[in-house]
Amino acid sequence: MEHKDNRYTISGTDIEEVKRKNGQSGMSYNEAIEWMAKTTGGRGTAIYSDTNMEEVKKQNQSVQDYNKNKA
Rank of each mutant, 00 (worst) to 15 (best):
G44F: 03
V56H: 00
E31I: 00
K38F: 02
Y29L: 10
Q59T: 10
S25Q: 06
A71M: 09
N52D: 15
M27I: 05
I33F: 06
I33P: 00
E17S: 07
E34D: 06
Q64P: 00
K57D: 05
Q24L: 10
A46F: 06
T39P: 03
E55H: 12
G26W: 01
Q24S: 02
V18G: 05
N69T: 04
Y8P: 00
G42K: 10
N67E: 12
E16N: 11
E16Q: 12
G44L: 07
V18R: 02
Y48D: 01
Q24R: 06
R7N: 02
Q24T: 09
Q59G: 12
N60T: 04
T9G: 00
G26D: 04
Y8W: 11
G23Y: 01
G23K: 02
D14M: 00
N60G: 10
A37C: 03
S62Y: 05
I10D: 14
K70D: 06
T45N: 05
N22Q: 12
D14W: 04
E55L: 14
V63E: 09
Y66S: 04
V56T: 02
T9Y: 08
K57L: 07
G26C: 00
S62W: 08
E34M: 06
G44W: 05
G41L: 03
R7S: 12
K68P: 01
S11N: 11
T40G: 06
E55R: 02
T51Q: 13
E34G: 05
R43P: 10
G23S: 04
I47M: 15
S25E: 07
V56L: 06
E55S: 05
K70L: 11
E17R: 07
Y29G: 08
Y8D: 02
S11V: 08
I10N: 08
H3S: 09
I15S: 04
T9N: 03
K57A: 14
K68T: 08
Y29H: 11
T40S: 11
M53R: 12
I47R: 15
N6Y: 09
M1D: 11
T45G: 08
E34R: 08
K38H: 01
V63M: 10
K58T: 13
T51F: 12
E16D: 14
V63Q: 06
V18M: 05
G44T: 01
I47P: 01
V18W: 00
A46E: 15
R20N: 07
N52E: 14
G26F: 00
K21R: 15
M27R: 11
G42A: 15
N60Y: 01
N30G: 09
S28M: 05
K38A: 10
I33S: 04
A46N: 07
K68W: 06
G12D: 03
G26Y: 00
I33Q: 05
M36D: 10
V63S: 07
V56D: 08
G26M: 04
S49T: 14
G12C: 05
V63C: 06
A32D: 04
R43G: 10
